[in-house]
Amino acid sequence: MTKEELSQLASKVAEGKASMAELARYNAACEAFQKEEIGWPGMEKELVKMEVASLKQFWAEQPDRGGATVKLWPRIAIAAAAVAAIVFGIWFYNSGPEILKDPGSGPGQDNVAKHDIAPGKNTATLTLPGGKTITLSDAKNGVVVGEDLRYNDNTAVISNNSAELAKGSVPGSLEMTLNTPRGGTYQITLSDGTKVWLNAASKLTYTAVAYQTGQRRVKLDGEAYFEVAKDKVHPFIIESAGQKIEVLGTHFNVNSYSDEPVTETTLLEGSVKISSSGPQKNSSLRGGERRQNVILKPNQKAVLKGEKIKIGNADTEAIVAWKNGYFKFNEESIQDVMRKLSRWYNIDVVYAHDLPQGKFTGRISRFKKISEVLALMEFGTSVKFKIEGRRVTVIGEK
Rank of each mutant, 00 (worst) to 15 (best):
G108F: 05
G108P: 09
G108R: 08
G108L: 04
Q109C: 00
D110W: 04
N111E: 12
N111H: 07
V112K: 03
V112Y: 05
V112S: 11
K114N: 08
H115L: 02
H115G: 00
H115C: 05
H115D: 07
H115W: 07
I117A: 00
A118L: 14
P119Q: 03
P119M: 05
P119C: 05
G120P: 10
G120D: 11
G120F: 10
G120K: 06
K121A: 09
K121N: 04
N122Y: 11
N122V: 00
N122I: 00
N122S: 13
N122H: 13
N122G: 00
T123Y: 03
T123C: 13
A124S: 05
A124I: 06
A124P: 04
T125I: 02
T125R: 13
T125N: 14
L126E: 01
L126Q: 02
T127K: 12
T127N: 02
L128I: 07
L128E: 08
L128R: 04
L128Q: 05
L128A: 07
L128C: 07
L128T: 06
L128Y: 07
P129L: 10
P129E: 06
P129T: 07
P129V: 10
P129K: 08
G130D: 10
G130I: 07
G131P: 14
G131L: 13
G131M: 11
G131C: 12
G131S: 10
G131A: 11
G131W: 13
K132Q: 15
K132I: 13
K132D: 14
T133M: 06
T133K: 12
I134R: 02
I134C: 05
I134Q: 03
T135M: 06
T135E: 13
L136W: 04
L136G: 05
S137A: 14
S137M: 02
S137D: 09
D138H: 13
D138N: 15
D138R: 13
A139T: 13
A139G: 12
A139I: 01
A139Y: 01
K140M: 10
N141W: 01
N141M: 05
N141P: 02
N141H: 12
N141I: 01
N141L: 00
G142C: 07
G142P: 04
V143W: 03
V143M: 03
V143Y: 03
V143D: 03
V143G: 04
V144S: 05
V144K: 11
V144C: 02
V145L: 15
V145P: 03
V145I: 15
V145S: 09
V145A: 12
V145F: 15
V145Q: 11
G146F: 12
G146Y: 11
G146T: 09
E147T: 12
E147H: 09
E147L: 09
E147G: 14
D148G: 15
L149A: 03
L149N: 02
L149Y: 05
L149V: 08
L149T: 04
L149R: 01
